Simulated assay, not measured.
Amino acid sequence: MSVPAELKYTAEHEWLDLDGDTATVGITAFAADALGDVVYLDLPAAGSTVAAGQPCGEIESTKSVSELYAPVDGEVVEVNAKVTDDPGLLNTDPFGEGWLFRMKVTGAGDLLDAAAYLARTGGA
């Protein structure tokens, strides 16, 4: 399983790429694989405020509907139109074209480094 070392992770399988006070958010390859084929996304709108650990959207797959959790506190500044138009990008490129949204970070969440995330997932 791919777990890029430069990213931060949550126990709920979101990843976070910090660049100053801006972060790009997505779900991990582990989560995408567990979900199966993703068919629909309900993402937070640009301008909305999200709180670390709280639901901020939904991911619907052929298997189930799962909540998306905000990894940190902040304001959503951009939503990835490519992934809303083609939710399958979450399955094919979860750490690249399949990113979900960008946000201005205002508060920290409970984040893990790659090693700690791998340990939680059993190194799958």
Rank of each mutant, 00 (worst) to 15 (best):
T62K: 04
E97L: 03
D37V: 06
C56A: 12
H13D: 11
A23Q: 06
G36H: 03
F30I: 06
V79D: 03
E78A: 12
L100C: 12
V72S: 05
L35P: 14
T92R: 10
S61G: 09
T24Q: 12
A108H: 09
T24G: 01
A119M: 11
C56I: 09
Y69H: 09
D42L: 10
L16M: 11
A124Y: 12
T84M: 12
N91M: 05
T28C: 15
L7M: 06
A114T: 02
G98C: 03
L43P: 00
A5H: 01
L16D: 10
A46K: 07
G88P: 01
L35Q: 04
L118G: 14
V105H: 02
D33C: 08
Y9F: 15
D110E: 14
E58M: 10
L18N: 00
V39W: 00
L111H: 04
V105Y: 04
T24A: 11
A11N: 14
R102P: 13
V105E: 00
E67Q: 14
A81N: 06
V83C: 06
F95Y: 15
G109S: 06
P87L: 09
V25I: 15
L7N: 01
P71V: 00
V79T: 07
D37H: 03
G74L: 01
A11S: 11
E12S: 13
T49Y: 05
D73A: 12
Y40H: 15
E97R: 14
M1R: 13
H13K: 05
G96R: 11
A46M: 11
P55W: 03
V25K: 02
K8W: 04
D93C: 08
D73R: 12
G47D: 03
H13T: 02
L16F: 15
A119V: 14
V39C: 04
Y9E: 11
A81D: 15
S48Q: 14
G26D: 09
A124W: 13
D86I: 05
A115Q: 15
A51F: 06
Y117N: 05
V38C: 02
A46E: 11
T22H: 13
T10M: 10
K82A: 14
K8V: 00
H13I: 05
A124Q: 07
T24C: 01
G98H: 03
L112W: 04
E14N: 12
G88Q: 12
A124R: 12
D37T: 04
K104F: 00
A23S: 09
G26T: 04
V50P: 10
P71F: 00
D85W: 02
L89R: 04
V39Y: 00
G107D: 01
E12D: 14
F101H: 03
P94H: 09
T49S: 13
R102S: 06
T92E: 11
A45H: 14
